[in-house]
Design a protein around this nucleic acid. Structure first.
Lengths: 339, 339
DNA sequence: CTGAAAGCGCTAACAT
DNA sequence: ATGTTAGCGCTTTCAG
């Protein structure tokens, strides 16, 4: 007859159920789970058995509410189809998992507006920290992150004005370096081919341009597209380059997908790489080592960026002050057959 | 003063804060957000302004707790680096987002034990539904899902005994089909090359074997590895095949990554594909259309599998009964240059 | 080592 | 159209 304002509840087994069955208080069950050494062994075992038998699964929403700590962090990447980020995700995930944090992953599709929407969503989940890709965010996203007062790490590039701290490498410098590598090899007419020109690709373009200027070479051999990067797009870009500038020495493709597509197109057109034309890519994705000829490219520390970002976030989460605001993990020009 | 059992709280702006500032009750603010038409326009506007000004972000943990629905679903994939699943994720995400659900993504690294761990974690988040890859799960995972009483969709293969419903295509049939395609082309010595032999790859292998038997052909040309799939592995497998069986007609690689790697190796070895050797892959990833020669493969409806899985889960979430338990989305042999 | 009471921030249920 | 009250399932705080 206990009727009167009955609520549904989830119908699942709760901490209170376990407590009642074992004949202890809720807090003791809670302790047995979270701080086992604060509960006598006998009791702990008894509680554990009851938990197993009843398939009790703690409700984290309740826990988060009570402790105002969700033990989750948000990780925002531009895209899953971009293999660059799969390793970043792996690095973040491994570190966070080992510290008992759950990583909530979102992909913005290279849209800062979608990123803003995701930040809002994840903030609703009361994430304890946020890892973002890049340094380009909407005003509102910045404001929300500020108000929420959560630690933020930006990765993959070194922001001038980091929201919190940033972990990555100098994309401009990388673009410059690899262009200088080509120049040192004696190339003069060096093109830049880009697609999906996100902020990082634009920085590489800037590096190319600076290197060309510095060497007194022309930066006219430039074709970029805002469309998505793909093997096909790489093939198309190559076709356009050889048609417009038949006497080109080399082309710097802003990523390995494009460069690999260009290599395939060269095979079809019987353009001998690197004898007639040098091709370089960016990122050192697995495909770079496998094509024929293999692809000269820039090796980027993606996995390490993920790990380090997570480690730094963890420090902030534990209340430590950041020592370095901009953590540079470097890059390396990887000479192979194509250039 | 008012001291006595004070708790920390999150320090963030809450619904109560907004209610107090506007001078209404909490539930009215709640309604203004969730069911705007149940609040007078004037009040709604006033509340909305206050929310914006104060940067209020609803706490979903609290909402989930109160309503015992989280408006989130879990999506478990074996791997992010496998491009097959990036499209599945995209399909699921698009559909779920459009219905106001947030998708929590986890990757099991092809381990059913890791999958079990993820299921437990996501169940702690009180997800409303779960989408799994494949039909292989641990006993404990099955039990947890059963007890949690959430709708489950398994995707990518057609389980004999689905946990809930399943959405995919017949992997055995696909393996058989593409082998028959080769047989019809007049090939007799057809090899099967596999890596990371997950359950789906094993089913394709079975299809190959069945087709070979049916045609009275030998199934001796078989090499598989439990190691991860990669371009390199494809190249290695090709090398091993041509060494062991120099007179082979064709090789069915269990996925496009392997097949592409094999194509690259053929280029290096000057093995003319398809004249000397036919090569086929599986999945029709973007690379299949781009290599030279382009890759004959099996087009699989990955994106559609994602969308449909989400749609079916949505139906279950709304309490509808499942009409079909096994939803077959088919596949298509995609003839190109390599076979 | 164990427990009682209070409350995290929100929504369901029952008013008016 | 708006409000009151209770309570979701857990952890914190204070006590013993």
């Amino acid at each position: 007859m206990s009727s009167q304002r009955r609520r549904k509840g989830s119908g699942r087994v709760t901490l209170a159920d376990i407590a009642a069955k074992v004949g202890v208080s809720k807090i003791t069950v809670s302790r047995a789970i979270r701080t086992p050494d604060k509960v006598s062994e006998a009791l702990r075992l008894k509680i554990q058995r009851c938990i197993d038998e009843n398939g009790y699964i703690p409700n984290r929403a309740a826990g988060a509410l009570a402790s105002s700590q969700s033990k989750t962090v948000a990780l925002l990447v531009p895209s899953f189809s971009n293999a660059v980020f799969t390793e970043v995700v792996k690095g973040v995930d491994e570190v966070m998992l080992s510290e008992g944090y759950q990583v909530l992953i979102g992909h913005s599709g290279y849209s800062t507006l979608e990123e803003e929407r995701l930040i809002e969503t994840f903030l609703q989940f009361a994430v304890d920290g946020v890892i973002l890709s890049g340094s380009q965010h909407t005003e509102r996203a910045r404001r929300m992150l500020g108000q929420a007062n959560v630690p933020v790490v930006e990765m993959m590039e070194l922001a001038d004005n980091p929201l919190g701290i940033c972990v990555g490498f100098d994309q401009v410098e990388a673009g410059r370096s690899v262009t200088e590598y080509l120049i040192e090899k004696g190339h003069k007419r060096i093109g830049f081919a880009g697609a999906r020109m996100d902020h990082r690709a634009q920085q590489r373009l800037r590096g190319w341009r600076e290197a060309m200027w510095k060497a007194g070479l022309s930066d006219e051999y430039l074709i970029t597209s805002q469309a998505a990067s793909s093997y096909d797009m790489g093939a198309n870009l190559l076709a356009e380059f050889v048609q417009r500038w038949p006497d080109l020495d080399a082309i710097f493709f802003c990523n390995d997908d494009l460069a690999a597509g260009a290599i395939f197109e060269c095979q079809r057109r019987n353009i001998r790489v690197p004898h007639e034309l040098s091709v370089i890519g960016f990122n050192n994705l697995p495909i770079a080592a496998s094509t024929s000829p293999s692809l000269t490219t820039v090796a980027t520390p993606r996995y390490e960026v993920g790990r380090r970002s997570a480690q730094e976030l963890l420090k902030l989460l534990q209340g430590e002050e950041a020592e370095e605001l901009r953590i540079d993990l470097g890059f390396e020009v990887k000479g192979r057959e194509s250039a």
